[in-house]
Design a binder for these strands. Structure first.
Length: 696
DNA sequence: GTAGGGTTAG
């Protein structure tokens, strides 16, 4: 400006204000950039008594409350000195409090404003409604809605827009929609508020419906709209609409918006197009923590857990700090892979960075430890969590049950009810599997009946499966069979397989044959089922029949699925298949296995069980332990670990009787604690015995 | 003066 004097900025400013007393507003707002400016202008205006001018006072108040990132104290001290604050002074203060994360103060001040009989105006209402949204203060919001109507601002668009936002934020999407429908005129803010409202409540179908309506009515939408719609497409697996939006983004040059691209990545991953998602992710010039998290969670949800962990390591090399959301997906992948060391490191990192242990993160940790067989750590995390929800309890109960601690699982279930936490359907899967572990048949029956009677939860196929397991394991094979035939829903392969497995344990040929009939119909190529029946025949000495089933398998071209084990060493996951000679450690393992077998045999163990003998006849060579991949992994563990250490093996196939017995002996003669994960059940071997006493 | 977006546990 021409009149600028060579003084300090503030002095320059006070000089200009003196020169233009009639219009100080823009000057104050434009020039007041720092706290120092504010102090000097404030002092000057007091000295010249011009703060008594209400307009000037309000402008300065706006600087302190809104423009500068000051705490509200300064503005408040100024506000108190105003004799009779007008509604605009109150509005400035309400806005300031909401902006500076003190919506409660905003609401209290609004109450005071009403007590002092100051009439709110059309500017006050949107501001105070925003504070209500933040606080999720529904009843206050409703009162303000009534006041808006009384004051005649009911069809004022800014008020209506904020009403939509407030209702949606307080969980009243339907009311928000009513406000929306009642509007005679809508802006893009109106539509986006409604879309965001549906998004917040997870009403994905409504998001898409509303978006289609926007297109139908030729309403303008923007990037914010598209982000919400893409999120909805991902949740609904609506790839068609997702791809259309993708094309729109391309055609309209919106690819520079990282948030938009992240939601595209998320959409593609959730629709099963993980590779497309990855290509987009790789093309992003800058990736923030959310972009990385979206891609990692994409891999995790697509069951590509190794890729998820690889990407997590890449993220660290790229020096992007993960947040608690990232960690949830990472832990979930660790749980699937049984990657205890990696997951433990994640836990350590969470503590070191003082990350907030949210309910979700805590629950992911509980689940991770449980699925890695470290059930004590699960309980420890659970006990330390400040807030828990039904899923935290459920995951813990399931974890205890699958780790052979059925009694503790039921104790936690009782405790949960004492705390008035309503169980969900999954909770009962944990409870019922705890019963099957402990052979609690009557309790199992009564939980099964009680879940629908007392909690209104209709049993799903999984619950029926649990009941079959309970009855079958307890030797009540015929009752289990009757239970299946009386089920109100169609039994699936898992249910019949459960029965078949208990027929194996109890050497029941009749119902074993019956189960296989159904299994052949439902899943004709599932090799494990034939093997199970073949082993049932073998266990009662019917070798001819046993071999007949095996040759039937061959005729049908069904191959035995190779056993597969995962073992983590120094944070690296090694994957071994039975008869593996590809893995670089194969030779080493083979030698160790041979050596191990010698020692096992000299300790008095003879591998003489049915499956081993059958395999021997089939392959025309002596049954050796080496074809059981878990034993490969154990051998691998033995050569790499010191006595006394725990060896952990994650498996995705059943542990056979043969290897179960062998592992017991190994744990004793090699002095190792061995944790074997057989799908989602655990066997803790120590000192020659196993935690599961119901299984073999 | 109003909205403001993407990643999370079974």
């Amino acid at each position: 400006m021409a009149f600028t004097l060579p003084l300090s900025p503030a002095k320059t400013l006070t000089a200009t204000i003196t020169q233009f007393p009639e219009n100080p507003k823009t000057l104050i707002l434009e020039q007041c950039k720092t706290t120092k400016d504010l102090n000097q202008i404030h002092a000057h205006l007091i000295k010249t008594r011009r703060l008594l001018n209400p307009t000037i006072a309000e402008n300065l108040l706006e600087c302190a409350a809104i423009l500068l990132p000051e705490p509200m104290d300064y503005a408040l001290s100024m506000f108190y000195k105003i004799d009779e604050p007008t509604s605009s002074a109150y509005t400035i203060m309400i806005r300031g409090f909401t902006l500076k994360q003190s919506p409660l103060e905003a609401i209290l001040l609004y109450k005071k404003m009403r007590e002092n009989s100051v009439e709110p105006d059309q500017f006050t209402f949107p501001c105070i409604l925003k504070a209500c949204s933040r606080m999720q203060a529904l009843s206050e919001g409703e009162q303000i809605h009534a006041q808006i109507m009384k004051c005649g601002f009911g069809s004022y668009m800014f008020c209506e827009n904020t009403l939509i936002h407030m209702y949606a934020h307080c969980g009243k999407v339907e009311v928000a929609r009513r406000v929306f429908d009642g509007m005679s005129e809508r802006s893009i803010v109106t539509w986006n508020s409604m879309v965001a409202g549906y998004t917040k409540s997870g009403y994905w179908e409504d998001v898409v419906k509303l978006f289609r309506k926007m297109m139908e009515l030729d309403v303008r939408f923007d990037e914010v709209t598209l982000v919400s719609v893409l999120t909805a497409c991902g949740r609904l697996a609506d790839l068609e609409l997702g791809e259309w939006i993708s094309g729109y983004i391309e055609a309209n040059g919106l690819k520079g918006n990282p948030t938009l691209i992240t939601s595209l990545v998320d959409m593609y991953a959730k629709c099963g197009r993980v590779d497309t998602a990855r290509r987009l992710f790789d093309q992003m010039p800058r990736r923030d923590v959310v972009a990385w998290s979206a891609m990692i969670s994409g891999y995790n949800q697509a069951s590509q857990c190794r890729e998820a962990l690889d990407l997590f390591h890449e993220m660290q090399r790229a020096n992007v700090d993960p947040n608690e959301v990232t960690m949830v997906s990472v832990l979930s992948s660790c749980a699937v892979l049984g990657a205890l060391e990696t997951g433990k490191w994640v836990h350590f990192y969470i503590k070191k960075k003082r990350m907030k242990l949210t309910v979700t993160l805590g629950t992911a940790l509980i689940d991770f430890y449980a699925k890695c067989g470290s059930i004590d750590s699960s309980v420890e995390v659970f006990e330390r969590m400040h807030s828990k929800n039904v899923l935290s309890w459920t995951v813990l109960i399931q974890g205890l049950a699958s780790n052979g601690q059925g009694k503790r699982a039921l104790e936690f279930f009782n405790l949960m009810q004492e705390k008035n936490i309503e169980p969900i359907d999954v909770t009962f899967i944990g409870v019922l599997s705890a019963c099957s572990h402990m052979g609690l048949v009557d309790e199992g029956r009564s939980f099964f009946v009680g879940m629908s009677r007392d909690f209104g939860i209709e049993p799903r196929i999984e619950h029926y499966g649990c009941m079959v397991d309970i009855l079958g394991r307890a030797g009540l094979i015929e009752e289990a069979y009757q239970f299946i035939t009386n089920m109100p829903i169609q039994p699936n392969a898992v249910v019949w397989r459960t029965l078949l497995a208990s027929c194996k344990v109890h050497k029941n040929v009749e119902f074993g044959e019956e189960s296989l009939k159904h299994l052949v119909r439902l899943e004709p190529t599932h090799s494990g089922d034939y093997i199970l029946l073949s082993n049932i025949y073998a266990s009662v000495g019917r070798w001819e029949d046993a071999l007949r089933v095996r040759s039937q398998m061959k005729e049908k071209g069904i191959k035995k699925t190779p056993g597969c084990s995962l073992i983590e060493l120094d944070g690296v996951i090694h994957e071994f298949f039975a008869e593996d000679n590809v893995h670089p450690f194969s030779k080493e393992i083979y030698n160790a296995t041979e050596d191990m077998m010698k020692r096992i045999k000299s300790a008095g163990y003879v591998p003489n069980t049915a499956e081993a003998r059958l395999d021997a006849k089939e392959d025309d060579k002596e049954a050796s332990v080496s074809h059981h991949s878990e034993k490969l992994a154990i051998a691998f563990g033995l050569i790499k670990t010191a006595p006394g250490t725990t060896i952990r093996i994650s498996k995705n196939l059943r542990v056979c009787t043969d290897c179960h017995n062998a592992t017991k002996i190994i744990s004793k003669i090699f002095n190792r604690e061995i944790v074997v994960r057989d799908r989602n059940r655990f066997h803790h071997f120590k000192d020659g015995s196993c935690s599961c006493n119901d299984y073999w």
